[in-house]
Design a protein around this nucleic acid. Structure first.
Lengths: 145, 145
DNA sequence: CGATATTTGTTGCATTTGTAACTATCAACA
DNA sequence: TGTTGATAGTTACAAATGCAACAAATATCG
């Protein structure tokens, strides 16, 4: 007795991904928004600089899949809040190296620690194998390899 | 020789979910945007009505986790494009029942078929077990049960 | 060298979104 | 009743976003 499982739109993958992403982001957003007044894009730029050190705006775009206008605006905002500074590159003046200030590093350290806690709390509801598969799934969809 | 696996921000779950969701949504967006000029929220409202039949705006909000202002605007847009009609409820005139017109049903049938194709194409890169686990993961994060 | 194309980043404008205030209807209960 | 509170939905305004045009620097190639 074969049972054909009908495709239900509740199981539509982009829809599920969006709902899950929205829930998870809103939850963690409280942390960086209430403490530092950061927007999501600003937090993302900050964490790329904290994670990788000096980067140009272009490199952040490529790594994060954020559009250059979003990055440009986030960089301005972070600079205004003294979380980030720009350094000229003499050999190619089209771009500048971006790096975190002391203050930016402190914010990054704090937020990273919160991120770890948040991640552990949420992921602990799943077995290690489930975690691996879910991560692999998301990375592949996002084409992160 | 125990090796502590350091938490890397590339593995931060909300970040991964967002990137995957963005990629998947942009991909499928081409379908409803180019053919019907719909926005993402409009497609979501349309698919809820196609999937469940008559609903009030409130019911769509609850089922989809969309804010009532987004639903309100999407309903107006879909109504203007003749995809949807409103029916008064005599017993409670605070809300109206929303349902698809013939045109709306046709668009839904078409887009649902495309959604099925898209879903199969993307999901086929994973084993059935991986698919199950990934679905369960996303649903739990989204608190869909 | 010099004209043209490409790369990096910013800005202006239109569209979309979020928040809060608002209207209209119904519920509850003294 | 009638006063207060809750619910459904819309709208106004500010903030965030996407897209296209732009400026400035460098690369390419006759």
């Amino acid at each position: 007795m074969t049972q054909i499982d009908p495709f239900q739109l509740e199981d539509f993958m982009p829809y599920l991904l969006n709902r899950a992403a929205e829930k998870a982001s809103l939850e963690f957003q409280k942390t960086y928004k209430s403490t530092y007044g950061m927007l999501r894009t600003e937090w993302r730029v900050l964490f790329h600089l904290g994670r990788y050190g000096e980067l140009t705006a272009k490199q952040i775009c490529d790594k994060s899949d954020l559009h250059k206008t979003k990055v440009s605006r986030a960089v301005s905002a972070l600079e205004k809040q003294r979380f980030l500074k720009r350094t000229e590159v003499p050999t190619d003046r089209r771009h500048e190296l971006l790096s975190l200030t002391k203050q930016g590093q402190a914010a990054f350290a704090h937020l990273q620690a919160e991120a770890v806690k948040y991640n552990e709390r949420v992921m602990s509801a799943f077995t290690p194998e489930e975690q691996d598969i879910a991560m692999k799934f998301m990375k592949q969809i996002a084409q992160l390899t």
